[in-house]
Nucleic acid binder design. Sequence first.
DNA 1: ATTATTTAATTGCACAATACAACTATATGC
DNA 2: GCATATAGTTGTATTGTGCAATTAAATAAT
Lengths: 144, 144
Amino acid sequence: MGIEQHEQIELELAILIRRLGSMTSEHAMDRSAYLLLRQLSAVKTAGVKSLAEALQLDVSTVSRQATALSRKGWITKLADPLDRRAFSYELTTAGQEMLCDYRQKRTDSIGRLLEGWTEKDQELFSRLLHQFNHSVREDSKKST
Amino acid sequence: MGIEQHEQIELELAILIRRLGSMTSEHAMDRSAYLLLRQLSAVKTAGVKSLAEALQLDVSTVSRQATALSRKGWITKLADPLDRRAFSYELTTAGQEMLCDYRQKRTDSIGRLLEGWTEKDQELFSRLLHQFNHSVREDSKKST
DNA sequence: ATTATTTAATTGCACAATACAACTATATGC
DNA sequence: GCATATAGTTGTATTGTGCAATTAAATAAT
């Protein structure tokens, strides 16, 4: 029942996170950059504040990340015409390509990892991960 | 088949890692310390080399971590009587308590998160996470 | 309308986790 | 017994992060 299961899951998650943290560093893009690009891709355009909220990071962190990505030519910084304090970022074509490419690489890695898995287990894993993320999301809503 | 599933899993993992990365920082102990204590708890006694292998970290990293944990009084460093280069670490009582306490907190968090889940889904999730970590481990062996 | 407060963003500083390389001291192999 | 391998530490650098201070602009209060 419950308790041992939770302990087991707790352990697996701890391992998973550390392993995947180092796994992503194989490629050229780091996880944080990836997540920022992904977020920007999702919302099309956003300033550091809203990005920071979405990514649950400090604005200063996002500010630096955005500067870095901008230097790489993956995103562009646009002055907000209505609010002269504010800026919005959006993906460049190069950024879109990078994101797409990187996502493909990651997807391929996952595919390679799941080679020996049954189709059913893959589906289940996908569903349960989604479900778990949903639970985490709900939980963080509660505590806000 | 396959591809979309992998994209989905890739996405869910990206989200998971981001969310859980910030989740763990709530508590007093950091993840790396936790994993080291855990490992030491599992093997009872080990030097930095074997710990580093198990945790897949550089020995220097583990050396520093061990020094830090030793300073906190959670582990003790013992000279190896057979090999005067070598040392072994083991958990102190305080370390065992810390580990137990922290693990409990994490387990409780997980339990809270999984409140609405069926027993079956919890079991499945546990199994699949384990399976996934195994896959990652095998994969990293291959590339070594 | 002038002043005070809030807000968006940046930058300086600090810190933790990490890797790599250089080094020390000991052990092992030929 | 010398050459090489091994256990561990330490110096240096990088990266991702947060907090505090700062700037500049917008909004609210008097």
